[in-house]
Write a protein that binds this DNA or RNA. Structure first.
Lengths: 133, 133
DNA sequence: CACATGCTTGACGTTAACGTAAGCTGAACG
DNA sequence: CGTTCAGCTTACGTTAACGTCAAGCATGTG
């Protein structure tokens, strides 16, 4: 069974981030580790949130955008202040992500094409000079 | 037929960026507009590059990463200094993008699930309180 | 001609997302 | 008991990607 509670260092090693980063996320209200005296303790929920944060970052979302998404994911836990507003934000983000997903697919196709080109250029060194400026 | 050459303002209006941004990209060697006296003139190729830049940004790539990709796209035009190195970078980026594409797909599914949840919570106001800490 | 318009080049300011260094605390160890 | 270690807070530093003036040409217009 995976350990229930992790120290900051264990978190860092597990998710490959620095202590500074975790404290920073806490200061920005993306994480809410418990305290044992001074020390931060990270629960399973904190880890889930961190995973979402890191994933969001890979997609180019800002921490502020990610925070809103996190609120959405933990919609059950919070007081449902402005719940429908939060929900609305979620719909928007989802649409955005779908858009990006599609664009990214196209970009990948493009790049693949381009790399085929490059392959030719390397194996054969033919450069037909298609068109002058 | 779309106009061949655009001024900086026309570029800005077309692609919804500021002059500062275009000059900045030039200073970073992402764009190479021609000059008529002092003034910058943006060709079709510049526009293509700008489109790629903006697309790359949406995927969370840094300008430096994007510059490398652009080099790749214009691999035919450049002197092929370190051509195979450039090619290699392209392969890496491609793999990276494929990875993100997949992750993004998963994230979208997750978020969709989550939003179903939220929908329940709004229509019916039932909150079963699944598990205590 | 005066002046507005559009573009130019500096150069300093700003925000996000941390990095880094200084100095304090509390448990643990020889 | 001294110190080593892990973690804490406070605070200034840094980088990327522009924003925001300031001041200077060129060109057209009343």
């Amino acid at each position: 069974m995976t350990k229930e509670i992790l120290t900051i260092r264990q978190m860092c090693d597990t998710y490959n981030v620095t202590p500074r980063t975790l404290r920073f996320y806490e200061s920005k209200e993306l994480l809410f580790p418990a305290r044992e005296g001074q020390k931060r303790l990270f629960s399973k929920r904190d880890r889930a949130r961190l995973k979402l944060i890191l994933r969001g970052k890979r997609f180019g979302f800002s921490l502020e955008e990610i925070r809103q998404l996190l609120d959405l994911y933990h919609i059950g836990d919070q007081q449902h202040t402005q719940l429908s507003r939060t929900y609305e934000i979620g719909r928007e983000r989802l649409a955005d992500m779908e858009q990006r997903h599609e664009e990214l697919g196209l970009a990948i196709d493009d790049l693949r094409e381009q790399l085929k080109w490059g392959e030719n250029m390397i194996t054969a060194n033919a450069k037909p000079n298609k068109a002058a400026e």
